[in-house]
Amino acid sequence: MTPIREMFATLERAALLPYLTAGLPTPADSIDLFRAMVDAGADAFEVGIPYSDPLMDGPVIMRASEVALAAGTDATRAWAVLEQVAGLGKPTLAMTYANPVMQAGWEAYCRRLSGVGAAGIIIPDLPLEEAGPLLEAGIAAGVGVVLFVSPTTDPDRLRRVAQADPEFIYGVSDLGVTGERQAVSEHVVGLSARVRAVTEVPLVLGVGISTPEQVQAVRQLADGVIVGTALVRRVLEATNAQEAARALFDAVRDLRTALE
């Protein structure tokens, strides 16, 4: 069993998967922020690789990408951060976009992920129809590939996503790009039920889930919850790395408590 699947199988509650962009506030300080989240009870990580054109991301994560790139987080430094995060002992997934992976080559990229100890990859602009080469490369390298379903995904398509046997299904809980919302989307209950009806592939909910209250509201609906923007915002608002680490510790601890 893969480390990610094993985590879902072992935990008796939904897992907490914090998202954070690599290289914040600088490539050198980045690992301290992830370590603070481990101390606060994070179960696994989604590490955002800074990218020039993050199409599925809202203003906060877009800004984080710009800040990280401006701080010198090129591909080499992003790989180094990813390796450090994976070294913390929690299952670690890279979140990036199709172009940088395609430029490196699907197979080479997956081999490198495996080499740095990463457990999986998430590419939001690579839908099922375009994911064939990545799925093959992931199997060959022992790297789990995540596929998405959305409130707009119809049952037939959902079945095809499940049949591709992704590492987990990323359930986009609301229409729109990443970002905080006032309340949990009305779509989320139906989305979860539709996924559960057709597959046992683990379901992780993300997009528009930010607060402990919102996490509590969805914890019965999925095997895991991704919180990104709410954490990234705290890092961008902090004046230095120590302050950011403290803010992340508090936020992740509260989110974890909401899952107990």
Binding site: P127, E129, E130, T153, D154, V172, G176
Partner: peptide, 20 residues
């Protein structure tokens, strides 16, 4: 069928847009 002109084109879009 995949929306390709030779090796170019395709549909590299977020899942939410795929049905649309």
């Amino acid at each position: 069928e995949a929306g390709r002109f030779g090796e170019f084109g395709g549909r590299f879009a977020p899942e939410t847009l795929m049905p649309a």
